[in-house]
Each structure stands twice: as structure tokens, then as C-alpha cells.
């Protein structure tokens, strides 16, 4: 399992990186934790690896009135050790605990995960749930892409070949927001068989409002579940409401079968996990 021949470049500026990306069949390497395994199997055989390691910046977590700005090179361990996130976006903090293993959390990055777009991974789920805005830059300049437009299908995004992710913005998180995160994987650190990231706010009457429920691991990409959200919005969050939302969630997914689980199991799991995530939120 040796990699196919590659060329390597570690440019010092983003302009150089973009130029290199446009020059041939090239791949950006950020942490490399998703890219290296597929290159080891020769499932990915790019001509050129463009390593972002020398490009300054992109590695900060900024929390301001806009929300949480995650630089593309922010690593999972950076999120894990940033105590501010428990308030600024507790859903993110919880979700990232489930990402892979210790060594991978030391190198894997937000930008890498979002660009890789594995349908069972956590960061894209948080991006989908929180309506993240993904900043990218390329030869045609910089642009911002909404999460809903970014994740197209399994391992497919709207990123152009010469574009690099620079930042993921998670919009501001009001105090008092209720949230829950649930995933079920075969073992600690494995990709989820299914997962749910959810939050809602409470209106003046104590009813749920602005519900956001996103599913991952149960379809070709991370996406929100409007039926489940509708079942929650405007209602007091009782066990009955939660059950109705969970039932709606399972009805609006059509998970694929693979060696780890049949689709019908994943569908049932979506119901269970939605119920548990919302029960956590309601606590």
C-alpha cells in the first residue's frame, strides 16, 4: 500500500497555492487525515499535493458577534481545548468529541473535513445544522457558500478545483438555546451509522422555535430535516412532541444499506437518535 507517484509543494502564500491548484490535477492537503488513507489505497491519485502548512493564518478560532469563525486549518484538538466554545457553540464542542481518534484529532482540520465531505462525519453536520457560511478563495476571487449549497453528495461539494476553504462561520448562538447531539457508531471514533445534531430556541410561551435538526450518516450528505423541525416548531417540547418529531425525522430519510448497516436499521436509528437528542435539549 504505497502511494502512487506525486509531486509536492508547500507554497508560502495563498496566491501561489491557488496557482498550483489550477496547474494540474492537484489536491489540497490540510491535515491530510482523510486524504492520506485514500491515497494509500490508490483510490485518489492526484498529480500534485499542495500543502497549506506554510500559509500563514487560517488557524484561529475567532468568536465575535457574528458567531464562531473557524479557520480552515483549525484542528479538532484546538476546538477540544477551547473552553469558550462551551458557551459560544456547545453543539460544536459536543460533536467534535466524536471525531476520530486522539492522533487524528491532533492533525485533522475543519477545512479538510468540510472539503472531504464524508456523509457520516460530524463537522459537515454541524455546518448543515447551524447554517454555516463557508468562505473559499480561488482564481476567480473569494466567495461565501451556504452549507446547504456546499454539500452536494457523498464526497462532492461545490468547491472548484482551484478553490481553498479559508473559514467556516457558525452564526451566533443565543444564550438559552437548547441543543442535543447524538451519534451512534460501532466503536469509539468510527464513522457514525447515523447521527443527529439539533437545536431550537424557546419563544415567549415556552414553545420551540427556530428548530434546526440535521442528520448525518443516513444519506448521501448532511442535511436538515424540515419535517421534524416543523413537528417541533410552535409546540411545547413534551415527550409527545419529541416522539412526533422523531417519527417525522425517520420518515424523511431514505438511508442506503452498506456492509455496516441496512437502510431500515439506519432509519430506525434516526428516530431513536432524534428522540434522544431532543430529550437532551429539553432537559
Amino acid at each position: 500500500m504505497k502511494l502512487a507517484p506525486i509531486r509536492y509543494a508547500a507554497p508560502a502564500t495563498m496566491d501561489e497555492a491557488i496557482a498550483l491548484l489550477g496547474s494540474c490535477d492537484a489536491k489540497v492537503m490540510s491535515g491530510g487525515q482523510s486524504l492520506m488513507p485514500i491515497m494509500a489505497f490508490r483510490l485518489a491519485t492526484p498529480e500534485l499535493i499542495v500543502d497549506l502548512k506554510k500559509i500563514p493564518g487560517l488557524d484561529q478560532i475567532v468568536i465575535d458577534d457574528q458567531g464562531v469563525r473557524l479557520g480552515a486549518k483549525v484542528r479538532w484538538c484546538d476546538i477540544e481545548s477551547d473552553g469558550r466554545l462551551a458557551q459560544a457553540n456547545p453543539l460544536l464542542a459536543e460533536a467534535i468529541k466524536h471525531v476520530a481518534h486522539y492522533q487524528i484529532r491532533n492533525r485533522g482540520t475543519v477545512g479538510g473535513s468540510v472539503a472531504h465531505a464524508d456523509p457520516a462525519s460530524e463537522m459537515p453536520a454541524i455546518a448543515a445544522c447551524c447554517e454555516a457560511v463557508i468562505s473559499v478563495i480561488g482564481s476567480k476571487g473569494a466567495r461565501k457558500i451556504k452549507a446547504v449549497d456546499f454539500f452536494i453528495s457523498a464526497l462532492q461539494t461545490s468547491l472548484e478545483a482551484d478553490e481553498v476553504i479559508t473559514e467556516v462561520l457558525l452564526p451566533a448562538w443565543p444564550a438559552g438555546r437548547r441543543w442535543g447531539f447524538q451519534e451512534f457508531a460501532r466503536r469509539r471514533g468510527d464513522f457514525a451509522l447515523a447521527g443527529i445534531a439539533a437545536f431550537y430556541d424557546l419563544d415567549g410561551q415556552g414553545c420551540a422555535a427556530n428548530a434546526h435538526i440535521a442528520v448525518f450518516g443516513a444519506s448521501d450528505r448532511q442535511h436538515r430535516l424540515p419535517g421534524a423541525e416543523a413537528a417541533l416548531n410552535g409546540r411545547p417540547v413534551t415527550p409527545e412532541t419529541i416522539a412526533a418529531a422523531a417519527s417525522a425525522a425517520s420518515a424523511e430519510v431514505d438511508p442506503p444499506s452498506d456492509i455496516h448497516a441496512p437502510g431500515e436499521y439506519r432509519r430506525a436509528l434516526v428516530e431513536t437518535l432524534t428522540e434522544r437528542a431532543l430529550a437532551h435539549a429539553a432537559k
Binding site: M1, Y8, A10, M29, G32, Q33, M36, P37, A40, F41, I49, D51, C77, H101, Y102, Q103, I104, N106, R107
Partner: peptide, 24 residues
Amino acid sequence: HGVCGACTVIVNGAAARSCLMLAV
């Protein structure tokens, strides 16, 4: 392919899988 952990080394103080890093 980054699963077994036998190749773990410490890079700049942090544990890393050396099969998931290029030498360069």
C-alpha cells in the same frame, strides 16, 4: 491507512500517525 496506531510518533509535541503524514 491510519487505523491501527502502531506507527504513532510525536510531532512537535503532539501524537500523530506517521503513516498519515508525508515525510516531506
